[in-house]
Amino acid sequence: MSFQRVPGLVSIVITVYNKLPYLTDCLTSLLNQTYPSWELILIDDASTDGSYEKVMNWLNNNEPLLREGKGIYTLRLPRNTGYAGAITAGMYLAKGEFIAIQDADDLSHPERLARQVLYLNNNPQIDLLGTNYEVFEDGKPDSRKAVHWLKYGDQIGKVYTKGGHCICHGTAMFRGAVFDRIGGHTRRIEGAEDYEFIAKVIKPGARNVDNLREVLYYYRKHQNQRSRNYFGNSNRDHGYDT
């Protein structure tokens, strides 16, 4: 029997590895989405700091979600697989027409899902859609800074052709059919699995990816984030003014 995706449903995939301090803020930002049709798939990659227990407590405290028919699915992996393994496991569980990525230490604007779904419905040629975003230091959510490295429209494909990167992975929403066609993330480029996945989605010679210019995502900077292991503390990585 062929797999049937649910029309209009957004499957939000979150991977968690030792993100205890940030989970409540992240999950609350999703609880506040104005778009009504979504499911949450949370993959805990063998956390050791109590993150999984924190998630389960949050779900217990937000039980009305379940009564509203929201699908909330958690999977605790028996051992740490790394980011590529965890997020791909989540994508395999996703049944939505659309799959949205959300990093466990970041926040989404309440209109994020609604704006992305609207754009994808109005632009059937687009397979993957990011958004503009702002950066804030941990503990200072009201002091956000703009970024300047994103590209839009035809410029995106040109950047990736040259080995560049101009879509924030945490903001991405893509059609579930894309995953069914090309699969998920791989371990081929450690630390740049996000770049490789987006580059794999892009069709040469076609404009099938884009970014919304609206700020619909908030990226938290903190000492324990995964990207610092690969790119250090340089503000240049997010292209915002210091």
Rank of each mutant, 00 (worst) to 15 (best):
N62Q: 03
R187C: 09
N62C: 04
C166T: 11
Y92L: 12
I99T: 06
A114M: 11
K158P: 01
P110A: 00
F98H: 06
M56R: 14
L118P: 03
V215H: 00
V135S: 01
T81G: 07
N132H: 10
P124Q: 11
Q225K: 11
V209R: 02
A199T: 06
D138F: 12
T171C: 11
I43G: 05
D138A: 13
G85K: 10
S227V: 14
A104E: 00
Y17M: 02
L129F: 06
G170S: 13
K221P: 04
Y17G: 02
D127Y: 08
E63N: 10
K158T: 14
L23K: 07
A172V: 15
E39S: 13
D138C: 06
L93F: 15
T186Q: 03
A104Y: 08
G176R: 05
K145G: 04
S47G: 07
A172E: 04
D45A: 05
I126C: 03
Q125W: 01
L20I: 10
L129I: 06
T74W: 05
E190T: 13
G184C: 02
G239I: 02
S234D: 12
E68K: 15
S11G: 12
A172T: 15
H165F: 12
Y218W: 11
D154H: 13
Y230D: 00
S143V: 08
I182D: 01
N208A: 04
N211R: 09
D241S: 13
F98W: 15
Y219N: 12
A192Y: 15
N61Q: 12
P124W: 00
R226F: 11
S143G: 00
G90S: 06
Q33T: 13
Y195W: 15
I43V: 14
I198K: 05
L212V: 03
T34A: 08
V55L: 13
L31A: 09
G96T: 07
L31K: 15
V178C: 04
G130R: 04
L120K: 04
R67E: 11
Y217M: 02
Y22G: 00
I87H: 07
A86K: 09
W58G: 05
A192E: 11
E196M: 13
V147H: 02
G163A: 08
T81W: 10
T74H: 06
